[in-house]
Write a protein that binds this DNA or RNA. Structure first.
Lengths: 188, 188, 188, 188
DNA sequence: AATGAATGAGTATTCATTCAT
DNA sequence: GATGAATGAATACTCATTCAT
């Protein structure tokens, strides 16, 4: 018998991502996903119980991979961490447009289960930890960490697309500017 | 598109807003809209060319009404303007949940035409003007006004839902905090 | 607007009956029903909530019409009533092959709801009444009426197809024979 | 069709019987049969050419086993033979509910081939022989034997489920009643 | 203008069967 | 022979839109 193939599952997930970029979440059909993945329609259901399950899992994976990539604290000076986050986010947006579109369309959709939403919410924890460190060192304001995390996360999320549209030469300046805004906002 | 009965068009727009809150954009059907508006399915098409057109128009109107309400500069001290914006946004979120849900679901959907997206983008202009004034008075940093506007707009947008979930007694503090973050970020 | 048309519902029911005769209950598709009824697929769903509902309703109607036709007591001599029932059943089988096939295939299917099963079960009541009369007149055995009814009903049901296959000239003899068997079995 | 392992074929047939009782003929899937039989889906096709073939063969075997069990003439007095048949049928219904359900659902289905239908029809032969004997001894009416056989067979088939639902204590009486009805119907 | 019945293209999912291992 | 992954045709049902009244 043919062994259940992990690459096939990856093909299907990748195909889903690309389809959503091309036709949008609303226009996504399982047949198109299968075709793009190079498998039969039924095969998709061998690996994923339903369309909902496929999208939910893809969202979880994409979001987690993204979070792990962007939010990491190397323990160095705080100000630098801000720049690193902005840089990582910008790079991600520039290089992973499919993922960005997908996450944007999924965020408010009914496809995301509560479990996944909860798991994804944990992604801010590294940011929280970073900010806690800053507060402990009295470098940052004594504001509720949740508020600060939301501020930092959402600000970068909102600014990144602007930066990605800039010519590469101007991105260094943009990064420093955004990191500077965040820093000035939060610093004690 | 609308002829005789302007009320009927408003009924349909209002019904659409409520339906989206109840069943989501993905679950929205024209029949449900018509039922909720108290008209026949066909009647919807008398006032709106298509589902897309209905949603697009509703998005434009909602967004414009919202922008006009939240972003207005009374010419007073800049720092106070920041607080007023945050306050207005918070109040809007608290009192217009249907509109908030609708705008959230539409933002990344394919229903919004480019024309509407462009028109909506103009909504930041009052913010731009406000910031220009601040820059002229050398109270704010000499950063690209578009960037500053995006920062201010998106930050408040991201923070408002947090504030809306707070008990009313804590909202005053929240407003000041958020306005303070924005001010510190942008001030010269 | 077009008025909801009762003949259309009848067309669909009639088409279903004919399709089941041709392709069997298992091979029945809603598209084929619609095509045979001369309407669009969606139209079937205007008149019937689902395939199950369509089949359930058709079963109920068919069975009730059949029962009303076959089981009726004109109050005359009992022995004659037996012949009339056999005759009516035979005629029905000979003239309504679609209905016979349909009822046969539905009887053990999961399409029939409990409510319909209960309603259909009431169809034996005229037979029960007839037998009660016979017992009261001491023409029939003093056996549980339910048992007698089941005997009479099922025997005729089982024999009718045999009679229907006979050349018309022999049917008179067949009727009398079957009626005689039933009579001899139940008479006191 | 079956090769090495005769047990495996039996397992599959038995599993099919149980599945039909649990989910009905309409809900039967080959995967469920395989799972219940403890083999892989593909293995079912090693022993049976197709779903149709599996069901057809199972029907033939079940019906033949049933017929052999219920219809047997020990050469004793005719009246007693009637009681024995009713008794055997009742016992069978009480003890083999899977088989009864299966035969009931198959009877009107398109799964049964003409060949099988013909072979199954031969099952009445012992009944025919019994009745021929009775006619020869002039104990029974001089009616077409086929008609008599159909009458006896179908009557018992129709009555048995009623008896099976009775409390065991009342079954003796039921048997005698049914045997009596049949006897009175057919006796000269 | 208003109605709501009618349309029919579009789609997620199932499942008998095949086939590579 | 045995396995179970892979296939893809088949199908009930939905829903935006049209149109007869």
């Amino acid at each position: 018998m043919r062994r259940k193939d992990d690459t096939k599952a990856r093909d299907i997930l990748r195909a889903t991502l690309e389809e959503v970029r091309l036709v949008g979440l609303a226009g996504l059909s399982m047949e198109a996903v299968a075709r793009r993945a190079g498998v039969a329609t039924g095969t998709v259901y061998v690996y994923f119980k339903s369309k909902d399950a496929l999208l939910d899992q893809l969202y979880l994976e994409t979001k987690q991979k993204f979070t792990a990539l962007v939010f990491q604290d190397d323990g160095g000076p705080l100000r630098g961490a801000f720049t690193r986050i902005v840089t990582a986010y910008l790079d991600y947006v520039a290089e992973n447009s499919s993922e960005i579109v997908f996450m944007g369309q999924m965020a408010n959709s009914p496809y995301v289960t509560e479990a996944t939403r909860a798991a994804v919410a944990l992604g801010v924890r590294p940011v929280m930890a970073l900010l806690e460190r800053g507060k402990a060192e009295q470098l940052l304001k004594a504001i509720d960490t949740g508020w600060m995390a939301a501020f930092l996360y959402e600000t970068v999320k909102a600014m990144a697309p602007l930066g990605a549209r800039l010519p590469p030469g101007e991105r260094g300046h943009f990064r420093e500017t955004v990191a500077g805004l965040c820093w000035d906002a939060l610093k004690a």
